[in-house]
């Protein structure tokens, strides 16, 4: 009998070892890909912080030149402000709309497939086409939006030509593109086990309490995902400004990554662009770490084992 605990510990250890080996093996595709394609360029981008690189000739030692440039760069605060504005107003609005739509489209109603497809359409319309149609919708005199506002006696503004309104206009546009978030929510909602709901119904729980106590907790990992990824992605917003506004009017849509892109590819300062990138990396990390830290309080995992 005395030997039994020892052997069971050993067995448990063996199991743990097996699990550890399996864990690394299962994760190996990403590890190999990371080492092969991403790690080198990432390390290189760290070296670039101290280099001057115009992309087309070999980099030169720049010492702290990139850092002193950053300290004196008045456009970085502007770009950061624009980006933070877009992120902290845009992401909550996008997620709220996506979540409500997903709830509405998770009900058994007729034409469900059609509705889902329609709400996903703007996300698959090519960016060029969306850009043109948005210019039409936001037109001061003939635009659909201002025509609509005119019904209520409101004279619509110059959406994309007022520095104060260009960012809200871009946020409004972004709401049309929430298809992916909606689909992720929908996939999460579909994953709520029917048995749990049935059990709750038998226990006499109303629809609201079912929703509040079963649906919401079970999809918190998905809400968490959309929030984390939404903020990471939104901090890197680029295309809308690159295609439609070019950062204007008066730098009001000069987003951080647009400014970074210009430094790297238009101003021949890839070293400085790398510094801007790593600054953004730490800003995003800050918000991401906070979110992971707070996750324990509200995100419910059935089986995430630590």
């Amino acid at each position: 009998m005395a030997a039994a605990p020892v052997s069971s510990t050993r067995r448990r250890k063996r199991f743990a070892n097996r699990e550890a080996v399996a864990g690394w093996l299962f994760a190996s595709p990403w590890l190999i890909g990371f080492v092969a394609f991403t790690m080198g360029p990432m390390i290189y981008s760290i070296l670039l912080l101290f280099l001057k690189w115009d992309l087309i000739t070999p980099p030169e030692w720049g010492g702290l030149a990139n850092f002193t440039r950053l300290v004196g760069d008045r456009r970085v605060p502007i770009a950061l402000y624009n980006t933070a504005y877009y992120t902290f107003i845009g992401v909550p609005v996008q997620l709220a709309v996506a979540f409500l739509l997903a709830l509405a489209l998770n009900v058994q109603i007729r034409g469900l497939a059609l509705y889902r497809t329609i709400y996903y359409l703007p996300s698959i319309t090519p960016a060029v086409a969306s850009a043109v149609i948005w210019l039409q919708i936001l037109h001061t005199d003939y635009g659909t939006l201002n025509e609509f506002l005119r019904n209520f006696g409101i004279a619509g503004p110059n959406w994309l030509y007022e520095p104060a309104l260009a960012k809200p206009a871009l946020i409004m546009m972004s709401v049309w593109g929430i298809g992916p978030q909606m689909i992720i929510f929908l996939a999460g909602l579909q994953g709520v086990p029917a048995v749990l709901k049935e059990a709750a119904t038998i226990d006499g729980a109303g629809e609201w309490s079912q929703f509040r106590h079963i649906t919401i907790p079970i999809i918190t990992p998905i809400i968490f995902f959309n929030l984390v990824v939404g903020i990471i992605g939104s901090f890197q917003v680029f295309t809308a400004a690159y295609i439609m506004t070019g950062g204007g009017p008066e730098n009001s849509t000069l987003f951080y990554v647009l400014y970074l892109w210009r430094n790297g590819f238009e101003y021949f300062r890839m070293g400085y662009a790398a510094l801007l990138a790593w600054v953004l990396f730490f800003i995003i990390s800050f918000f991401t770490v906070i979110q992971f830290g707070l996750a324990g309080r509200w995100v419910y995992y059935e089986a995430l084992r630590s």
Partner: peptide, 21 residues
């Protein structure tokens, strides 16, 4: 000028925006 795009994007363009508006 090698600085053309930067001058245009960051300074001349925004200033012209405010004049035309």
């Amino acid at each position: 000028s090698g600085a053309e795009l930067q001058m245009n994007n960051e300074a001349i363009g925004p200033a012209l925006d405010s004049v035309i508006n």
